[in-house]
Design a protein around this nucleic acid. Structure first.
Lengths: 336, 336
DNA sequence: CTGAAAGCGCTAACAA
DNA sequence: TTGTTAGCGCTTTCAG
């Protein structure tokens, strides 16, 4: 069964291909009746425009590339859904690739996508310091790009971020208000600006509440549950347990809680725990996990909108959108 | 900066476009030296083939559509990753859409993808009884399709499924061996063949171990944690708690465990719980959740391989691949 | 082994 | 308002 083309319709109606084409792109002049006629017979003949042909002649692919560190986690999955929500209705197709959280793979994915001629890119970088030169070069060469989440503040590009420092501050302050006296921050990886910002917020809160500087303890754990497990085991061994953990993410927090409970330490009575980047899991565990929720869907949506504006040549080179988080206080951090 | 085309290379080397094209598609005759020369200068000039042009002239898009119920869960995310693993290296791009678990949206997505001229489709249906006529029609019209997971056994199409009945049987038998005497099965939704198969396995195990037929209790809960919560609350109210729950998935199991613990019922000592479709969460909770793990990545890989064979016109119309699961026994179901 | 030329299906100047 | 025509960049048949 051959696909119907504009040529077939033109022949059938004794019109030219151009007229048919025009009927489908209402930016050109065409008499209303002929257009209606064309649209009607097109419908009858089961015609659908061939997107590839259109892409070739318009030299526009309507493809948008998205690169995320990984898509098995709620955070990035939700960002991707947000992106879809904006882009799909506008006729764009979204090509998602994951970088396995490595800058090398990320670069490779971006290159692949550019070679496949995406019209624009949304990148959720794995770190904020790698590949920047390359990205800058590509942007100057005319590839519209928008960055999400982990990206250096100083990098001059359209970006969508959360106010990590602020919400880290609130999370820490919440622990302080709950009368936790010795609070450790389990930080993911200091190469990531997001983590650095959270450290800043953490320290700022402690400082505000007159904690001694020597108590500003930050431990790097990576982003996996195992990181939380190991830290607690280590601290137990060294008999240096704090009475609260503020964790870089929910996974680490879960690792912490598990290990504490295994050692018969009660959460939140003896030790409070709070996570970040709320996951579905937070509500399902016992104790339910307190966590800072980020507006993930909105991050994706804003990034997509920014990209569209960027592709339309609006001047958004340095537009930065900062979104707000939200502190969900549940059982794991409530002593009162 | 204009993109380099084969024409530019041809001009530079005083060759014809065809030769340059041939150099990149080694199915045609071309002298080795000229080919090497072309490849070398192409490299120097920073040439990349324009995929759109190639697609148009080959009338092949190298796009594969994938429709899943949703991608915020490990199960489907892992299937998608499996698909990527096979398809990306072969130069295919994967377009993923989610149906929000409704047949209507699923149909719409499939139609959109077909209009966008994907070369083939992998569908993880939201139910196994909807849209089948349409799919059959499309397949007969020449669109290669492969189905994954929730799909009726009798539907004649290439498909990749798990042996749900078998692993449901093993899960139930495991509970029996742990001396649980009154086992309820929390089933998702009987419209889904996967759920029906698990019910079969459940009953088969009870039968084998001489449980009374009146004890074959199956309760529909949907697929969310809230379903588990509500059932336990209801059963508590009616004072009809079993001593073990075999749950359709980990989310429901988590809801069950949470609610039991809230009511000071110990898991697994008083009540055992086991999930299905292992999630990352299973290892992170306390007690750690026993669950049947399905080979999700492999399901995606097999589906992609099947699709490729199908697109190459191998006769695989009715090929069904049945994969094996695995029972991960953890704390939530071990009384001994 | 290489070149010329047609064509994939559509868009977009330009003419009429 | 409509038709003619020349592409978009590549593949592929046919000649040479």
């Amino acid at each position: 069964m051959q696909r119907v083309t504009i040529k077939d319709i033109a022949k059938k109606l004794n019109l030219s291909k151009s007229s048919v084409s025009r009927a489908f792109n209402d930016k050109y002049d065409i008499k209303k009746e002929t257009r209606d006629l064309i649209l009607k017979t097109a419908e009858e003949m089961g015609y659908f425009p061939n997107p590839i042909a259109r892409k070739l002649s318009q030299s526009k692919t309507y493809n948008i590339g998205v690169v995320v560190p990984e898509f098995i986690n709620d955070f990035h999955a939700e960002i991707i859904i947000g992106i879809h929500r904006i882009l799909n209705p506008k006729g764009y197709q979204v090509l998602v690739m994951q970088s396995d959280s490595t800058p090398e793979m990320e670069l490779k994915n971006v290159q692949t996508l550019i070679q496949n001629m995406v019209d624009g890119l949304i990148i959720a970088p794995s770190s904020d310091s790698d590949n920047l030169d390359y990205y800058l070069k590509q942007m100057n060469a005319g590839t519209p790009m928008v960055f999400v989440n982990r990206i250096a503040e100083t990098f001059e590009a359209p970006k969508v971020v959360c106010d990590n420092k602020k919400w880290s501050f609130f999370a820490t302050e919440h622990l302080i208000r709950e009368k936790y006296k010795k609070i450790y921050h389990l930080s993911g990886n200091k190469n990531i600006s997001v983590a650095r910002d959270r450290i800043k917020g953490f320290k700022q809160a402690l400082r505000k509440h007159q904690f001694a500087e020597e108590d500003f303890k930050v431990i790097e754990t990576g982003l996996l549950a195992s990181g939380g497990v190991e830290v607690v085991e280590e601290l137990l061994y060294r008999q240096d347990l704090p009475d609260a953990f503020f964790c870089i993410n929910d996974l680490v927090a879960m690792g912490v809680i598990r290990t504490l409970k295994k050692n018969n330490i009660r959460v939140p009575e003896e030790i409070g725990v709070i996570g970040f980047s709320e996951t579905q899991m937070a509500k399902l565990t016992s104790p339910q996990l307190s966590s800072v929720q980020q507006p993930t869907y909105e991050m994706g949506e804003k990034a997509a909108e920014l990209l569209i504006r960027h592709m339309n040549d609006e001047e958004v080179k340095e537009a930065t959108i900062v979104l707000n988080g939200k502190l969900n206080i549940r059982e794991s951090s409530k002593r009162s």
